[in-house]
Amino acid sequence: MFSFQAGMRVAARAARQACPRTSNNPSFYSKHLPRFQSRSFASRYSRFGEKPGGGSQQQQQKQWSNFGPVYRAQYIWRNYQRPLMVVGAGGGVFYVYNLEEVPVTHRRRFNVLSPSSENEFFGGPEQYNAVLNEFRGKVLPTDHPLTVQVARVVEKLLPTTRGLGGDDWRVHVIDDPEQKNAFVMPGGKVFVFSGILPICQDENGLAAVLGHEIAHNVAHHAAERASRSSFVLLATVAVSFLFDVSGQFANSVSGLILSLPNSRTQEAEADHIGLLMMAEACYDPKAALDFWGRMKKAEQFEPPQFISTHPSNYNRAEQIKKWLPDAERIYADTGCGSTSRYLTGFKDALSTKQPGAQGQVSPQRPVVSRRKDEDDDFF
């Protein structure tokens, strides 16, 4: 018995030496057992044109974002990738095909409306009559001194309008001392509010106003705004979907990003073109700079530029200073003499201003007007 127990003890000792206890050897499992590796589930989506199983594992795996807007963008892209690429390519070709240069400034812009379509949509008989009805009883007669004076400035600017001479130009002055505005509808319908005339002071100042407003027609800004409206609509839909917000908020964001900057660009462009036009028509271009100084003092409140359709008065004056040398060169090249003879006539017209009833509009006189819901056309 003793020899059997001794033999068992020897055998156990030999076994321990051959195979040490795992509790005393932590590396046992790492050496003899396979390690469990966690792996994330690969998305069932693959990149466009990628063959199943091709590429590295990291390229095949696509994670979904927890951020709502990014997640929605991923969803659209992964499920509608091919249609988006086709529509994007077609839209890019259409956009490039319809690019054109703005007269005078040579700015490249997108526009799909012809000048005739612009006149029909924004300056046709229906729109024109709507403006006349809106200000019925306030439009001064055609033989009123103020109307005659405004028509005289318009007639001097017409040779500089570059392609608009064939329009049916008509001029109206609206007796509203509170309104410091003017506008020109496509097709040559000019409207001037009497409230801006004291700020103009003379025909040079009035030429700065009318040159700016007519320049909007020269550059066909109404057609450009209508053409760009499709991009604003697409941006509104995209913002509304990605950020899950109401259409009104999305429209405000799209306007702040797309519409307002473009409107300020158009206003600055009209300042530039109008400055050159008034110089070519023998009106002193320095008067535009003086006018904006008076306009700044006359305005009681000016909103921040980034939420306005117009550049600030200060920025407009600074830009005019940069364009002034070119305008003065044109003014000198045209051989224009002193324009002082215009000052007396204009001041006399202001002093004899008598509001009267609306009269018949001469087909050869322009009309300047502005609608309350079209802020881009306000001066």
Rank of each mutant, 00 (worst) to 15 (best):
S3L: 14
A6D: 06
G7L: 07
A18N: 11
P20Y: 06
N24I: 03
N25D: 13
F28P: 03
P34I: 00
R35A: 07
R39N: 11
Y45D: 14
E50N: 10
K51M: 12
W64R: 15
G68D: 12
A73F: 10
Q74M: 04
Q81G: 14
P83Y: 00
P83D: 01
G88E: 00
V93M: 07
E100K: 14
E100S: 15
P103K: 06
R109Q: 15
S114G: 10
P115T: 12
S116R: 15
F121E: 14
G123V: 11
Y128A: 09
N129F: 07
V131E: 11
E134T: 14
F135P: 04
K138W: 09
V139D: 08
P141L: 08
P145S: 07
V148R: 15
V150G: 07
R152H: 12
K156F: 00
K156L: 09
L158C: 01
T160V: 08
D168R: 15
R170M: 11
V171N: 13
P177L: 10
G187A: 13
K189P: 06
V192G: 03
S194C: 10
G195I: 10
G195P: 06
L197C: 06
Q201H: 05
Q201C: 03
G205L: 06
L206M: 09
V209N: 02
H212N: 05
H212I: 01
H216D: 07
H216G: 04
N217R: 09
A219H: 03
R228E: 14
T236S: 14
F241R: 09
A250R: 02
S252H: 03
V253W: 09
Q266N: 13
H272W: 06
H272A: 13
A279L: 06
M295E: 01
A298N: 06
A298T: 05
T309F: 01
T309R: 02
T309W: 01
Q319H: 14
P325C: 10
I330C: 06
I330A: 08
A332E: 15
S338A: 13
Y342C: 04
Y342E: 03
F346C: 04
K347M: 03
T352S: 14
K353T: 09
G356E: 02
G356W: 08
G356N: 04
G356L: 08
Q358H: 03
Q358S: 07
V361I: 14
Q364A: 04
R371Q: 13
D377Y: 01
F378C: 02
F379N: 01
